[in-house]
């Protein structure tokens, strides 16, 4: 019995697979791959599969993480090759390792965001330098107003000809999450006009002290 952590990309049309559907999709892929997956030993055995950090529907990623267990140790290359042969378009595993960090260590994630527009840089600058960045967050009890200023770290801003390209560092994990769409919605409200989000891609997942989640 051995634990493995698979790192994979979720790109292209696979970004339309929801988190729940991804779970079922991966489960079947592992079953198809012929890898000797480990099953729980309870009354209803099921394949042990864990995703430490969910990804929003519509967001691409180059750093997704999935943990599972095999009944025997296998060379990482073999695991990668068998798994990739069973994965649908857009999902691609690129590394297999032993899990180091634990799910609860996750605290931040970095996103590349592409907004449609040729002259948005100043507007963005004004947006993030407000004393407060107020936004509506949907909760179980209805809409709640909150200030996301302290949660939002903008690492870089580049104005390309047709797009504003942002690198955002946002809280992630059990202790609090901030969805990219909350930020982009707030920016739209601030701008007072629709700004279409061309692409969002998760680039990295971090533990405390900006150590990459491994």
């Amino acid at each position: 019995m051995k634990d493995y952590r698979v790192l994979f990309e979720k790109k292209g049309i696979s970004k339309y697979i929801s988190h729940l559907d991804l779970n079922r999709c991966m489960l079947r892929a592992i079953r198809r791959s012929g890898l000797p997956a480990w099953y729980t030993e309870g009354f209803h055995p099921h394949l042990y599969l864990m995703f430490p950090l969910a990804l929003s529907l519509g967001t691409e990623s180059i750093c997704e993480v999935m943990d599972f267990r095999l009944t025997e140790a296998l060379p990482p290359e073999e695991i990668l090759q068998k798994l990739n042969a069973a994965l649908p378009e857009g999902l691609h595993a690129f590394a297999v390792r032993e899990p180091h960090d634990q799910t609860q260590d996750i605290c931040q994630a970095e996103y590349l965001v592409r907004l449609s527009g040729s002259a948005l840089a100043d507007l963005w600058d004004a947006f993030i330098h407000q004393p407060q960045i107020l936004t509506q967050k949907r909760t179980k009890k209805g809409l709640k107003e909150m200030d996301i200023k302290s949660m939002l770290i903008c690492e870089s801003v580049i104005q390309e000809s047709q797009e504003l390209v942002l690198m955002l560092l946002l809280p992630a994990g059990n202790d609090g999450n901030l969805n990219v769409s909350v930020v982009t919605d707030a920016f739209q409200n601030f701008a007072g006009k629709p700004i279409s989000v061309n692409a969002v891609c998760r680039m990295k997942i971090f533990c405390r002290n900006q150590k990459e989640f491994l």
């Binding site: 198809r32 649908p88 378009e89």
Partner: peptide
């Protein structure tokens, strides 16, 4: 994903 195709 009802509308994308691309399934296994």
């Amino acid at each position: 994903s009802r509308y994308t195709g691309g399934e296994i």
